[in-house]
């Protein structure tokens, strides 16, 4: 019944949009109509898309920790890795190595790419610097301004959102004293960001943590799944103390049907399976072996 009403409202909204009268009417709670840009006021148009990065500009702005004079050199150990990366590509297609090299530079440089780091990569690849800037600004996993020691990324795509990503964000913001995504804590420990789907929807909601404290060698990028607000804060506190929080699902082995996070609570599975209990309906996969045998005979 409720679903039917929602559908009807949605259809009405669709019609209003489709009419293209210039004044768009979007439905709001309580049957009131909200006219014009207010309907979209909640959306963050300045960014236009979710990003794990807290870079607001796609141009360079000098800052104390990232300016023309900030030095950058690959360490001797990482130089070996650079050579290894370059060896993967033909000499005249060196430029293909731009992403792995930028990643290496970012991890070495405590989580973000300075101008000089990008210039260094351009120098190694013998390509104009702008071609490296283009790549670094395109991919949201490259950061171009100072990061916290740990980069907390909350998945904000539909399944996680449905399972309580917003609550997790709010809890983390409150716990860390931040206002929104894209900010870092005053002590420089954490940067909080939103991220697009990380592909473990079955264990929603989840956060990923990039650990920049241990350099290239000890760099980790871990998923923490099936989290409640309590778990999230627990993970952050573990990290603050320098301990290793539990990686993967917080409440089950992997993704076996053991339960679900519901209303910020881990709810173990009810008695027996509730879905997919019968035989799967067809059409089934072809039995290729059998077909081959039949063809032979």
């Amino acid at each position: 019944m409720v679903r039917g009403v929602v559908l009807r409202v949605a259809k009405a909204a669709g019609r209003a949009l489709g009419r293209g009268t210039g004044l768009t009417v979007a439905p709001a709670e309580g049957g009131q109509k909200v006219v014009g840009p207010q309907a979209f006021g909640a959306l963050n148009w300045s960014k236009g898309y979710a990003t794990n990065s807290h870079d607001h500009f796609n141009i360079h702005r000098n800052s104390p920790e990232n300016n023309d004079e900030t030095p950058f050199e690959f360490t001797a150990e990482n130089d070996k890795i650079v050579k290894e990366i370059l060896a993967r590509y033909p000499e005249n297609y060196k430029r293909s190595g731009v992403i792995p090299l930028l990643t290496l530079a970012q991890t070495q440089n405590k989580g973000f790419l300075t101008l000089s780091a990008m210039n260094k990569v351009a120098e190694i690849l013998e390509t104009p610097a702008i071609r490296v800037y283009e790549v670094a600004t395109f991919y949201t996993m490259f950061n171009r301004s100072k990061m916290g020691k740990y980069h907390l990324m909350v998945c904000g795509t539909t399944p996680c959102m449905v399972r309580g990503a917003v609550k997790i964000k709010d809890a983390l913001c409150e716990h860390l004293g931040l206002k929104d995504y894209g900010e870092s804590t005053a002590d420089g420990m954490f940067t909080l960001s939103e991220m697009e789907c990380m592909g473990c929807c079955v264990n929603a909601p989840m956060i990923a943590v990039a650990d920049y404290t241990k350099g290239v060698e000890g760099f980790t990028y871990n998923y923490h799944e099936d989290i409640t607000t309590k778990d999230a804060i627990n993970i952050v506190e573990h990290l603050r103390r320098g301990e290793a929080p539990k990686v993967g699902s917080q409440h089950r082995e992997t993704c076996e049907p053991a339960g679900v996070v519901y209303e910020d609570q881990w709810v173990p599975k009810p008695e027996g399976y509730t879905t997919l209990t019968g035989e799967p309906r067809g059409p089934y996969c072809r039995d290729l072996k059998k077909e081959a045998a039949e063809q032979k005979s």
Partner: peptide, 20 residues
Amino acid sequence: VQDLGVTGRGGASEIGTYVE
């Protein structure tokens, strides 16, 4: 002069030199 490029992505992409 390889100074101009497209930085950023999607609706946020812009034409420029990245560094002034």
